[in-house]
Amino acid sequence: GKANSQLPHLHTLQISSLLPASVCSHSTGSSKTQSTLKVFHRHGPCSKHTRQNPTTKPLLADLLSYDQSRAKSIQARLNFNSNTDNIKTTTLNKNKFIDRKANLPVQPGISLGSGNYLVTIGLGTPTKTLSLIFDTGSDLTWTQCEPCARSCYTQKDPIFNPASSSSYSNISCSSSQCSQLTSATGNDPACSSTTCVYGIQYGDQSFSKGFFSKDKLTISPTDVFPGFLFGCGQDNQGLFGRTSGLLGLGRDPLSVVSQTAAKYGRYFSYCLPSTSSSTGHLTFGKSSAGNAKFTPFASSQGASFYFIEITSIYIGGRQLSISETIFKNSGTIIDSGTVITRLPPTAYSTMSAAFKQLMKKYPSAPAYSILDTCFDFSGYTSVSIPTVTFEFGGGVKVDLHPNGILVAIGKTQACLAFAGNGDDTD
């Protein structure tokens, strides 16, 4: 406490607070409306996926490896999108997603192994409950569907059966909705008889293919969307855990944000909990924004992603000497599915050095996966760490929560929860 009063730009925290508890505690957040869904971590005690399968929890090293795959695939996809010649080449190959091998390297997608936050929605009539990964970095919502003509992985909820839904219908190949799949998935649709067939492949080679369909989406008893367009997956493989699929919150016309625009006005918000043992929320539509400060979206390079502009970083209250150009040259997106923030290497190295300087009382620990600024807290039950503040376009300053600064590697080690890209131009 004494140290804290002398140096106000420190957080003093119990090391145990960086680790999840063994039991779930539910959020008491204020932003609750009819259209609020509970957000929970796929591998924490609030998830029914974990409660009955505690041994399926992956190692942190695995999650960070998946995270690197996602970060690389986002960068590959943005590079791809900037090359129109490549897009033409892709769209000419009408049958490519039927041939899995032909589809692999053509359109980089988003790795999903690290898409760890789930929400529960309802689909069909009568409504079936589905737990979906929520992802601001992709657009198409899909779920596994009976009869799983080729392959379904094991999921926790019963697999959606369109034959049991009175409001279900397929989309025809000739419809305008079918052609929208090209931008939403990066792949041209195909046809099975007259039914539109989608295929979406992610950067880690996870994929879902099946019928492009519509049915009733239920966010809450009062928020129901007939004719919601989604993928009814008949061939699904990859790092989806035991979830039922994915909820796409990107900017494309097929995303849930766009499809519900008439009611929610393309407005949504979420809060991710401090640890995987507590819950957060995802709210559609305007609710009390509370104390939110707004930064403008930056001009977008891709159809899906939400670009913002970082202008400065503060460590321990002190602004780092990083040229704004470093951030402008690369651009920045905000993503609910990437775990660790990636910075241009020049910015990251400056941040790491400043953080280490203010943490010099703690011994260093070896690097862990993509994290290379690590500390040994053996013998400590509480530690003092520098505050970290990001400044975004429009002068918006955001103080990070301590659990957004350090990630615990175990009970005695933690690492700065940031990583550098390979190159300032990434």
């Binding site: 760890n116 905000i334 990437t338």
Partner: peptide, 30 residues
């Protein structure tokens, strides 16, 4: 491209006003 990831978003109220072209951050969202 840089990526502002979900670890750094923890406990923040992250508000997407897509129609309004802006993103909000609020402290203590959950």
């Amino acid at each position: 491209v840089g990526i502002f990831g979900n670890t750094q978003q923890k406990t923040l109220e992250v508000v997407y006003d897509v129609a309004g072209g802006k993103l909000g951050f609020g402290a203590g969202g959950c």
